[in-house]
Simulated scan of single mutants.
Amino acid sequence: MQKDQLLNRRRALITGAAVLGAAGTAGVLVTSGGETPARPAVPAAGAQARRALRPSAYRLQPLTGYGPPRTAPARTLVRRAPILRVPGRGRTMVLTFDDGPDPRYTPQVLDTLAHYDVRAMFFVCGEMAVRNKDLLARMADEGHVVGNHTWSHPLLTRLSRAQIRSQMTRTSEVIEDAYGERPQWFRAPYGAWNRAVFQIGAELGMEPLAWTVDSRDWTTPGTRTIVGRIEKGAAPGVVVLSHDAGGDRSQSVGALRRYLPQLLDSGYHVSVPRRRLM
C-alpha cells in the first residue's frame, strides 16, 4: 500500500513537471481556476537558455492587412476656369440661389423645393449665414448643398490674397458650424475669377462653380420674364443662377413656384452635383 502511494506521487510529480515544461515552451500558464494567467517560467541559465520573446506589437493592435492601402487625401484640382455645366444622365439640371440666407425669402424657397421634393444649391455669404444659422441647419436636414460665396460679397479680383483667404475661410467656418460640414463648392461674387481665387479655393477643398443660365432676377424684371429666361435656357446639365437675398426677391420666389413644376412636368430632373463626377 505504501509503495503504491509512493509510485502514484512520483507519477504525479513527473506529470506536473511535463505540464510545466509544455506551458513554459508555449509561453503561457493558466491557473486551475482559468481566471488569471501566470507568468511563464524563466529558463535555466546555460548554453541552451534563450531569452523569452516579448509579444509582437501587432498582436496588440487590430490587423489592417486586408483593408485598402492608406493614401493621402487627393488635393482638389486647381482649375483655370469655373465649372459651368454638370454631367449627369438624362435631363438633369441644377438650381442655385445666391447671397442668402435671408429670413424673408429663403424659407419660401425652401418650402417650394420641399413641396416638389427637389434639392438645390445655396451659395451663402458669411455675414448673412452667421445671423441665420437655423436656415443652414434646415438646408442640411432637407438635403440641399451649401456653397461658399465669400463673407461680404466683394469683388475678389480687387483684393489681396490674404483678403481673399479671409473672405473664404471665415465663411467656411460658419458653414461648418451651422450646416455640419465644410463647403465643397464656392462661387465668386459677380462671376469675377482670377488665379488667386482658384488657388485659394482649391487649398480650402472647394471646386469653383459658376452658371449656365442667368435668370437676372436681381434686376427685378418681373416674374413672367424670370420664368421665360429659365424655361428658354433649360437643357441637360445646365446650372441656373437665381437669388434668395440681396434685395427684394419676391419675384424670384414667385418665379420658382411657376417654373419648377413646369420643368418637372417636361421631364427634367432637378438635382445637385456630386464632386466625384466633376
Rank of each mutant, 00 (worst) to 15 (best):
R39M: 15
R274G: 04
A57V: 10
A120L: 12
A41P: 09
S252L: 04
P43Y: 00
A45F: 13
P273D: 04
S56R: 13
K3Q: 10
T223R: 09
N132G: 05
T31H: 05
E176Y: 01
W211L: 13
L20Y: 01
G180M: 07
V197C: 13
T212K: 14
G247A: 07
R187S: 09
T106L: 04
Q61S: 03
L264C: 05
A255H: 05
Q163F: 02
A26V: 02
A202R: 14
A26D: 05
A196H: 12
C125R: 10
Y58H: 13
L159P: 01
A23S: 09
P261F: 01
A129W: 08
H115A: 15
K3S: 08
R249L: 12
R258M: 15
T92K: 13
R9F: 05
Y66E: 01
R216Y: 13
R257N: 11
Y105M: 07
I175K: 13
R85I: 06
D141Y: 02
T225K: 07
S152Y: 00
G201P: 03
V130R: 14
N194L: 12
Y268D: 01
R276N: 14
T150C: 11
G246N: 00
R89I: 00
H144N: 11
G191R: 07
G222C: 04
N8W: 14
T96M: 05
R39N: 08
L77K: 10
T169Y: 00
Q262F: 13
S242T: 14
A47R: 07
T92A: 09
T15V: 15
I14A: 06
R161T: 10
Y268A: 03
L260A: 09
Q251A: 07
V109C: 09
H243N: 03
P183H: 12
W151C: 00
A178T: 01
G88Q: 13
D141I: 03
P62E: 04
T112G: 01
T64S: 08
G27H: 10
I230S: 03
F97S: 01
R59F: 05
S166Y: 09
P73G: 05
A17K: 07
V146S: 03
P82H: 12
F122S: 01
L20W: 10
P103Y: 11
D248P: 00
R70H: 10
A255L: 04
P236D: 07
Y259V: 00
P221W: 03
A72Q: 14
P62V: 06
T36V: 11
V272M: 08
R70A: 04
I175L: 10
D177T: 09
A202E: 03
E203G: 08
D141N: 04
A44Y: 09
T220L: 11
K133P: 03
F123K: 02
E203N: 01
D265G: 06
Q2F: 15
D102Y: 12
P62L: 11
T71G: 02
D111C: 04
P43G: 07
L263P: 12
G88F: 12
M121E: 10
G65H: 06
P62M: 08
R187D: 02
P62F: 11
V30A: 14
I164D: 00
S172N: 07
T171D: 03
V227T: 03
D102P: 10
L264G: 08
E35K: 15
K3W: 13
G33A: 14
P62H: 04
E231M: 13
V130D: 15
A245Q: 02
A12Q: 14
T15P: 03
L110W: 08
Q2T: 15
V174W: 06
T220P: 02
